[in-house]
């Protein structure tokens, strides 16, 4: 089991965000976190990552809750949130290097071609559209080897072609034995995903 959430609760400024959430994540699983706007989907993801203090419940990383288990978990997890870490004042190629510094640069070109960023490699990201910026961040999906993907609204501001690419990538990831947790308002064209509804 990669991840096990039990009775998780989050409070923000004295307000409980959602009723206790429990789910298990095994390799090969896709979990879609659903819920209305403001129901705490992003907060739940950040709480799983340990970036947000939880007010109740337990999170087990591969069965453990120690610091070591947590650090190991962070290492094998790829998180792409609303704020993706893409720097406005760096060019696309500089951003790709910043975000994927451990990956040899020669591997970039196929992914860049696939995401249709090749013509913008030397353009500062502040001059790109939202969708293009998102592609820069999502390039990590193909460049990095991570067991678990945690994706916050990965389809937002992407065109159909890019959305299909991401869905394919997700399918490939779980076929390889990885796992994906994502939030989205869109119906997924993916068979066999579990849904966790926040209320």
């Amino acid at each position: 089991m990669l991840l096990s959430i039990k009775d998780l609760e989050i409070e923000r400024d004295d307000k409980v965000l959602f009723s206790p959430v429990s789910f298990d994540l095994n390799s090969g699983d896709i979990i879609k976190i659903a819920g209305e706007n403001g129901s705490g989907k992003s907060s739940l993801l950040r709480a799983i990552l340990g970036f947000l203090t939880i007010s109740d419940g337990t999170i087990l990383y591969r069965g453990g809750s120690t610091n070591r288990a947590y650090n190991q978990f962070l290492k094998e997890t790829l998180y792409i949130g609303h704020n993706t870490g893409v720097k406005d004042n760096l060019s696309v190629s500089e951003n790709l290097y910043l975000l994927n510094g451990s990956v040899p640069k020669k591997e970039f070109s196929t992914v860049v071609d696939m995401l249709q960023l090749q013509e913008h490699m030397d353009v500062l990201c502040r001059f790109l559209s939202e969708g293009q910026k998102k592609r820069v961040a999502l390039a990590s999906l193909w460049l990095r080897e991570c067991t678990l993907w945690i994706l916050d609204e990965p389809f937002v501001s992407l065109d159909n072609v890019a959305q299909a690419l991401i869905q394919n990538a997700i399918l490939k990831q779980v076929a390889k034995g990885g796992a994906v947790v994502l939030t989205t308002h869109q119906p997924l064209a993916i068979p066999n995903y579990k849904e966790v509804f926040l209320s």
Binding site: R46, L49, F51, Y79, G81, N83, T84, G85, V86, L99
Partner: peptide, 9 residues
């Protein structure tokens, strides 16, 4: 821009 999250990740 979320860089701090990515550092920790």
């Amino acid at each position: 821009d979320g860089s701090i999250d990515q550092w920790r990740m």
